[in-house]
């Protein structure tokens, strides 16, 4: 199913996500028609059971959509909505229509969900919330004695201070005080938003790297200097082969982590993916820009839609340094002899 789905999303995004659309989103416009098409195509709920109105798919279906969204620099909270829908489903809550986001997105930020009769009350502040201003609803994650509580609050229940990341994607500060919410306790880990946020960013980045490779190879065959295509110079070929290696590694690491998410506990594989893909993102952006020369450094050219995203996404939900340290500590804790059996059991 995920291959078929991949074809469907690729077709949709290729047709609809034009340079003009991304530019207008960067100026603050909400691409409502595109959102409607994505939603009506059932692409936002791969991880919501059919009984709750979703597609009842797998994490690999989610990968196909999120990867393609990254590949095409789709300026919408596709990944966030998919993740939020999964969290709600795990909590046994209904998933509303419209764009969703998740909060808090920082490991050290806490919001409070307090039960009041059959309802809940939400208080607190979350910074850097993706598409905070645009989300119809926000899915909040709050640790509690009864487990990790997943709450759903209407988007207009918060005061919003707008901000953005390097790619001009909204990253807003939301503050709730005594906001109405529905919520339920789950057995999800307390860091679930951070952990799975890292997972979806890895897939988006892997998609972004594919775009960089394709754009760079195309440019190298079109641009002529010294009387021939620059792609015929061996140094350019070697650099693009290196980019191809990083792209392949990134895709593999990300896809594997999604497969592990489908199987169960994927912490290790998410740490691997966010580390490896984050490293590839920086190196890949460098090669792509070098290949494109000055034209790639202009706003006019579309290369930066991807490179600016990669520079932000690799830092969001923990950069590769943070994840590498966590991964290294976990490997050291388990002991050297446990590493190989661990790798082969994934």
């Amino acid at each position: 199913m995920s291959t078929l789905l991949g074809d469907v999303v690729t077709r949709l995004f290729t047709d609809r996500v034009s340079k003009e659309l991304i530019e207008s989103a960067e100026k603050g416009a909400w691409p409502a028609a595109l959102w409607r098409e994505i939603e009506e195509g059932g692409l936002t709920m791969p991880l919501v059971p059919e009984a709750r109105g979703g597609a009842g798919g797998t994490w690999l279906d989610a990968y196909a959509v999120i990867h393609a969204a990254g590949r095409h620099a789709v300026p919408l909270p596709v990944a966030e909505t998919i993740l939020a829908g999964w969290l709600l489903s795990r909590a046994g809550l209904d998933v509303p229509e419209g764009p969703l986001t998740i909060a808090p997105v920082h490991l050290d930020e806490r919001v409070r969900l307090t039960p009041v009769g059959s309802r809940w009350r939400l208080d607190g502040t979350a910074t850097r919330v993706p598409w905070g201003r645009d989300a119809g609803h926000v899915v909040v994650v709050a640790p509690s004695d009864a487990g990790t509580v997943i709450g759903l609050v209407a988007g207009n229940g918060a005061t919003v201070i707008t901000d953005r990341n390097l790619a001009l994607e909204p990253r807003d500060t939301l503050t709730w005080s005594d906001a109405e919410a529905v919520a339920a306790a789950t057995d999800l880990p307390a860091d679930v938003a951070w952990r799975y946020g890292a997972l979806v960013r890895a897939a988006q980045m892997a998609g972004g790297l594919e775009s960089l490779l394709a754009q760079s190879v195309r440019y190298a065959t079109e641009r002529k200097q010294f009387g021939k295509a620059i792609g015929s110079f061996q140094v350019i070929q070697q650099n693009l082969a290196l980019l191809a290696g990083h792209t392949a590694a990134a895709g593999m690491a990300a896809a594997h982590a999604f497969r592990c998410a489908e199987r169960g506990d994927a912490w290790f594989d998410i740490a691997v993916a966010k580390t490896r893909v984050g490293e590839a993102a920086g190196l890949g952006a460098g090669i792509a820009h070098q290949t494109h020369g000055a034209i790639g450094f202009t706003y006019e050219h579309s290369l930066h839609f991807t490179t600016r995203r990669l520079w932000s996404w690799r830092a969001e939900f923990g950069g590769e340094g943070w994840w590498a340290a966590e991964l290294g500590r976990s490997v050291a804790r388990d002991g050297a002899e446990a590493l190989w059996p661990k790798l082969t059991a994934r």
Binding site: A248, A249, M252, V272, R276, A325, L327, G328, R329, L343
Partner: peptide, 18 residues
């Protein structure tokens, strides 16, 4: 040490899948 080990393990785990 943790960053170095984590970085190398991430690379190796990825290579195994490749």
């Amino acid at each position: 040490a943790a960053v170095t080990i984590g970085h190398l393990v991430a690379e190796m785990a990825t290579l195994r899948q490749m």
